[in-house]
């Protein structure tokens, strides 16, 4: 008898700014909603290990969706004639629409990289409806580590380039199996999607003017960053936490930019105590 994983996938359609977006999401577990946001150019499979960890799923309903244009979500009608560019407003609108559609009450929202960036804005503008936010490899401002002209390079739309760009962000200690699966997600990305996400990540997500206003008594903020991350460096994470009164910065040893997918065993050592402290408040 084959053992099935507990992950179940479904589809729904969100209407955002008058446009329909067919969204894929998957989930496992029960309890407080834990909504997971994937990195740029990738998809929700990054969180599959979390969804198979009873220490999480016994108390949290782990839900991860693919952003429009990503994974198994469909690009909107007319996509063939437009350039995909992710904006801060659209990103927040998708997350809120998803929470509304599934009627997720007081969720914990955890995002990685660009997802770790957008949770800052969610905490600024929607703290009332969040239980807490967790920014993995997250900060409140862009900090480019390569020249902007690269995004116009013809190879920036290719999977092989995307993998070459992000491969060094995995920690050397991460198991080969999971490192290469993490990088495979970048081969899978639609042409130009990673580039479109970079519009948000590099130019449309500076939240430093408002991040200090987050009420962490209402919505605790946890920022967890791997020591090998040179995209969102530990220093950038600590500076962000310093700007947000009450925010907690956690630097993870022997982990890179994709903790949940490149080294799930190392990640859970850091994540479980955070989930414990969130649960203690509920």
């Amino acid at each position: 008898m084959i053992e099935l994983e507990p992950i179940v996938g479904r589809y729904l359609t969100l209407s955002i700014a008058g446009r329909d977006h067919r969204i894929y999401f998957e989930e496992a577990g029960q309890g407080t909603p834990l909504v997971c946001l994937h990195t740029a150019g990738a998809h929700s499979s990054q969180f599959r290990h979390l969804m198979c960890d009873p220490a999480v799923t016994d108390r949290f309903r782990v839900v991860a969706f693919d952003l429009p244009w990503h994974g198994k979500s469909t690009p909107p009608l007319g996509w063939q004639d437009e350039e995909y560019l992710l904006t801060s407003d659209f990103y927040v609108a998708v997350v809120i629409a998803f929470l509304d559609a599934l009627e997720l009450d007081k969720p914990v929202v955890m995002g990685c990289s660009m997802g770790g960036r957008v949770v800052i804005r969610l905490a600024i503008e929607h703290s009332q409806r969040m239980q807490a936010v967790i920014g993995l490899e997250g900060s409140d401002r862009p900090a480019p580590w390569y020249d902007n002209s690269w995004t116009n390079h013809p190879d920036f739309v290719n999977g092989d380039f995307c993998v070459g760009l992000v491969s060094g962000l995995c920690a050397p200690q991460s198991p080969d199996e999971f490192r290469w699966e993490t990088l495979w997600h970048y081969y899978q990305g639609g042409t130009g999607v990673f580039k479109g996400d970079m519009h948000f990540f590099r130019t449309d997500s500076d939240y430093t003017a408002n991040s200090a206003g987050i009420d962490t008594a209402l919505c605790p903020v946890y920022l967890m960053t791997g020591e090998y991350d040179y995209s969102c460096t530990p220093e950038a994470t600590i500076r962000t936490a310093d700007r947000i009164p009450g925010a907690e910065a956690i630097i993870m040893k022997e982990v890179g930019h994709f903790p949940m997918s490149e080294n799930p065993a190392a990640f859970r050592v850091y994540l479980l105590p955070v989930l414990d402290s969130i649960q203690a408040r509920i």
Partner: peptide, 11 residues
Amino acid sequence: HPDPGFQDIFA
């Protein structure tokens, strides 16, 4: 296992 910051030419 290079130290952080030494694992990749971009780092």
